[in-house]
C-alpha cells in the first residue's frame, strides 16, 4: 500500500507546483508564499492519495477526513483574500475586489485539484498497476492545466492603439471621452507621453464582460504591474483609466507608461485573465441572441 500513496503524493505535489508556476504573474510568489502553498499542497496530496488505500483496508473514516480537508481548504480562500485586501491599501493601482476574489478562489480550487489528482493516481495504481497510474496522472495534469488556465482578454476583444487628443479640457481616446483634466501641464504631458488603447469586444458576450467594472480594474492593474506607470500619490490625473463607449461597447484606455511603447502595452492587455466573476454570456439566452441581431 505504500507505493500508491507515495506516487500519489508525489504527483499531487507536482500538480500543485506546476499550477503555482502558472500563477506567477497573477500573484507574484514570494519565496514564502510558495512554501505556504506547497506545504498545503502536500497535505492535500497526502489526503487524496491515502483515501482509497485506507478505504480498502476497512478504514472508512478516511472518507470523512476528505470532508474535513474541504473545510480546511476553504480557509485558504479567506487567507488569500485577507492578505490581498490588506495589500490593496498600498497599491497605486488597485486590483479591485473582483480580481482578489478571483485569485482567492483559484488558490482554493487548486488544492481540490491536487486532492483529486492524488486520489485518482493512487487509485489507478492499486487497481491497474503503476504504469496505468502514471498515465492517468499525466493525463489529469494536462487536463487540469488546460482547464484551469481560463480565458485571456485577447480571446474576447481586439486590442488596438487609439489616438489621444483633447477637446478643450476633455481627454479623448479616439471618440471615447475619458475624463476632464483641469491642469494645463498635465494635459500637455498626457498628450505627449500618454498611450491610448482601444479594446473592441468580438461579440456581445465580450461586450458584457468588458462592461464589468471589476474586469476593467483588473486590466488596469495588470498593465500597471507589467509595463510600469508614471504615477505616484499626488498625481491623480495620471491614474490609468478605462472608459466605455456606451453606444458601441468599445472600451478606451489611457495610461502613462514608463516606456511609451504601445506594442508592449497591448501585449500586456491581451494576456490579462478574464475574471470568473466578470464572465457574462448573454448570447447563451434567447433574449440575448435576439438583442444581438
Amino acid at each position: 500500500m505504500a507505493l500508491p500513496i507515495l506516487v500519489g503524493v508525489l504527483v499531487g505535489i507536482l500538480t500543485r507546483w506546476l499550477l503555482l508556476r502558472i500563477d506567477y504573474r497573477q500573484y507574484p510568489g514570494y519565496p514564502h508564499g510558495y512554501v505556504t502553498h506547497l506545504s498545503l499542497g502536500l497535505v492535500a496530496a497526502f489526503l487524496g492519495a491515502a483515501a482509497i488505500p485506507a478505504t480498502l483496508t476497512g478504514q472508512y473514516t478516511a472518507v470523512s477526513f476528505l470532508a474535513l480537508a474541504a473545510q480546511q481548504f476553504r480557509d485558504i480562500r479567506n487567507m488569500e483574500r485577507k492578505s490581498l485586501e490588506q495589500l490593496e491599501e498600498t497599491e497605486l493601482v488597485r486590483r479591485g475586489p473582483d480580481y482578489i476574489e478571483g485569485i482567492a478562489r483559484v488558490f482554493e480550487s487548486r488544492n481540490y485539484l491536487v486532492i483529486l489528482t492524488a486520489l485518482l493516481t493512487s487509485g489507478a495504481i492499486i487497481f491497474r498497476g503503476l504504469t496505468f497510474g502514471l498515465g492517468i496522472a499525466l493525463l489529469w495534469i494536462i487536463v487540469s492545466h488546460y482547464y484551469m488556465s481560463g480565458k485571456r482578454l485577447g480571446d474576447i476583444a481586439l486590442v488596438r492603439p487609439g489616438r489621444v487628443h483633447f477637446a478643450r479640457t476633455l481627454l479623448y481616446v479616439d471618440e471615447v471621452m475619458i475624463m476632464e483634466v483641469g491642469l494645463k501641464e498635465s494635459r500637455e504631458k498626457l498628450l505627449k507621453e500618454g498611450v491610448g488603447i482601444i479594446l473592441e469586444p468580438k461579440d456581445d458576450n465580450g461586450r458584457a464582460t468588458l462592461a464589468q467594472p471589476g474586469q476593467r480594474q483588473a486590466i488596469v492593474h495588470d498593465v500597471a504591474a507589467i509595463v510600469g506607470l508614471k504615477k505616484d500619490f499626488g498625481y491623480p490625473e495620471f491614474t490609468p483609466l478605462i472608459r466605455l463607449d456606451i453606444d458601441t461597447g468599445r472600451a478606451a484606455m489611457i495610461l502613462l507608461p514608463i516606456e511609451p511603447d504601445p506594442e508592449a502595452v497591448m501585449e500586456a492587455i491581451r494576456r490579462v485573465p478574464v475574471l470568473e466573476s466578470a464572465i457574462r454570456l448573454p448570447l447563451k439566452t434567447l433574449a440575448g441572441r435576439k438583442a444581438a441581431d
Binding site: R168, G182, G234, P236, E237
Partner: peptide, 8 residues
C-alpha cells in the same frame, strides 16, 4: 492628492 477639474 485630488484631481483638478476645469469648469471652463
Amino acid at each position: 492628492n485630488a484631481m483638478v477639474h476645469d469648469l471652463e
